[in-house]
Simulated assay, not measured.
Amino acid sequence: MASASVKDVAALAQVSVGTVSNVLNRPEIVSAETVERVHQAMEKLSYVRNEAARQLRLGHSQAIGLITLSGANPFFTDVATAAENAAADAGYSVIVGNSNERQDREAGYLNLFEELRVRGVLLSPVGDAADRLRRMRDRGIPAVLVDRVSSDSTFSSVSVDDVAGGAMAAEHLIETGRTRLAFVGGPVAIQQVADRLAGARSVVARHPGVTLEFVDTAAPDVLEGRKAGQAIADRAPEDRPDAVFAANDLLAIGLLQTLFSDGKLAVPEEIALIGYDDIQFAGASVVPLTSIRQPSHLIGETAVQILLEEAENPGLEPRRVLYQPELVVRASTARR
């Protein structure tokens, strides 16, 4: 059986084809009674809008593409949720992809979004994606960087000052009486990790007698945190750090599982622990985790707002929105 057409809907609702089009695209200019009659006709006929044809007419879809670094990190889940809500308020949907910190997967999603003619792309890039994003922008698909600053200021970005966040974490640990600090996180090719480490190093450099070692990890996740925690616990007491700054909360939770839950070291008595992102699980962990909070919802909402503005006005100058992080103190860094 052939699918119903706009003409079929118009005939059943006893309106013009133009009125049906207005109900679909500009319902605010149609009377409520007519909108209801057209919707009833669509339901009776099981009418399905030909979105592909509509995209061809408009040159774009009513969707926004979002690529996050990690689908396992609740921080990016919160950003995506906020972006979806903001997009829905503007009449758009969001298609979410997870690069898993792999450039090939990131490129694959960018290819898909270009094929789908999305209205624009929100991207937390693995590396430098500027050339590819410029080509997409030339084809009418703007991009806004999320949780990352454009290296050459040619793209708008919405992020948090991670250097300041790293400095805040180190300063807090030093204020609680710790002097042998370790930064656990990696790979440093991820700009956020590098910036947080740089911020911590800048503070330590100003405090004589305080040291900071770097413990690299293959990924910023719970499993790598557990591995790092085991390596620290295996050291002689005099060789261990007395405080750990984890590059994110997932690493910190993995560290906590090994150090505290497995009974190897007391947190915070023997070793203090601070994370980054302040995900929901941070405050609910077995030892409530001190963390550096990022305004994840505000990041997602602002990124969508800027992206849609640039989609409507391609000549707008790129903007850089840089939010400040916030220290959230809990039991894992209690003063000695």
Rank of each mutant, 00 (worst) to 15 (best):
R320M: 13
N248W: 05
L212G: 02
T81I: 13
I299S: 02
A32Y: 14
E28A: 00
I274A: 12
L24A: 02
L56Y: 06
D162K: 02
V94I: 09
S153P: 11
P220V: 04
V144K: 03
A252T: 05
P27W: 00
I232N: 04
D128C: 06
K44M: 13
R180M: 02
V188T: 14
R49I: 15
A228I: 09
S332Y: 08
A80I: 03
A205R: 06
V30D: 01
P314G: 14
H172M: 01
L308I: 09
L223K: 11
A247F: 13
V23S: 00
T333E: 01
R137F: 02
E238H: 14
S296K: 08
P142V: 03
D89L: 15
S156F: 09
P237Y: 12
T217Y: 07
A246G: 06
V163L: 14
L56V: 05
I279C: 08
V23I: 07
A169E: 01
T154L: 11
D104Y: 10
G209H: 04
E224T: 10
G315R: 15
A129L: 14
E36D: 00
R137C: 06
Y109R: 01
S31H: 11
L181T: 13
R134M: 07
T19V: 00
R330S: 01
D128W: 12
A200P: 10
L12D: 03
H39M: 09
S3N: 10
V222I: 14
D131S: 08
A194G: 11
R320F: 11
R196H: 05
D138Y: 11
V321F: 14
Q257S: 13
Y92Q: 04
L12A: 03
S156N: 00
R330P: 03
N111L: 14
Y276K: 12
L58W: 11
F75R: 06
L322D: 05
S261R: 13
Q55W: 14
H172Y: 03
S202Q: 09
A11Y: 12
V267P: 06
R26I: 03
A334P: 06
P142N: 01
P268F: 11
R137L: 08
L307W: 12
A219L: 15
A2K: 15
L308K: 07
V304C: 09
A80C: 05
E301S: 10
Q14P: 07
N100H: 13
L181A: 04
S157N: 11
V163P: 07
F281W: 14
G186P: 05
A164S: 12
K7H: 09
A243M: 12
A205P: 08
S61H: 11
V35K: 01
R226M: 15
L110V: 08
I271Y: 03
V30L: 01
A2S: 14
L122T: 12
S16F: 00
A2T: 13
T176N: 09
E36W: 00
D277P: 13
A252D: 04
G18S: 08
I232Y: 03
D242G: 01
A170K: 09
R57G: 02
V15W: 03
V144F: 08
G186Q: 06
E36F: 02
A90Y: 05
I292D: 00
V126C: 05
A72I: 12
I29N: 10
A303T: 07
E28T: 02
D152R: 09
Q294T: 10
Q14I: 11
F76C: 02
G199P: 12
